[in-house]
Amino acid sequence: MNALETRELGKRYRQRWALSEAGIVVPAGAKAALVGPNGSGKSTLLNLVSGLLTPTTGRVEIFGRPLEMAAVAFVAQDKPLYRRWSVADLLRFGAATNPGWDRAAAESLLSGHDIGPRERVDRLSGGQRTLVALALAVGKRADLVVLDEPLAELDPLARTEVMTVVRELEATVLLSSHILADLADVCDHLILLGAGRVRLCGSFADLLSGHPAADLEDLVLHYLRNPEAVR
């Protein structure tokens, strides 16, 4: 069963196609890394998959069904949160806006990292804010968790903490990052975008077998340097 499948997915902004004819497949339980240069369409793809944007062409299916808001949890780039709210306020927000809200799961993630309910969001560190955003995603109990650059601007310690949480998520995960080395430990699938098109999509093992590249980084670099290469 595929957790996520997109067909002919495209998004046009006025004259420019930010993403076109994107067909990706992420099997249930996989942790998929979305990589690609700036402007390659990563955020557009994630915004489409999370339902924030409406596609110009094509469609998104979650477990074989058309996308519904409750099926996907999304942590947008820069982890937007209401900065003047307390952590408890945000959890109440999650409960009020999601019928399947799992309070225990969200609270245990936070207490596991010593983030108290009375702390105000704007007094938290970047790593803590990321964890609060992840707690909201976990509490939603979605089938698919989508994370846009969750590691950006985090120090190495916070990065490790966040990646540990991501690794232990039960849901299927699709996350984007610039830093391939961070993803190799956590992810098992790779989606490579270039100039608004899908260049690679598959499990690490499948992609590497029968390819001269020594490792993932090598493989990605090979495809980025040869825009015509298609697998």
Binding site: S50, G51, L52, M69, A70, V72, A73, F74, A76, D78, P80, L81, Y82, R83, F93, G94, T97, N98, P99, G100, L136, K140
Partner: peptide
């Protein structure tokens, strides 16, 4: 401006209800 619409509009309720 704060980007929080991305938080509010990706929960389980529709934008109309929000």
């Amino acid at each position: 401006e704060a980007g929080t619409h991305k938080l509010a509009w990706t929960q389980s309720l529709s934008r109309g209800r929000w």
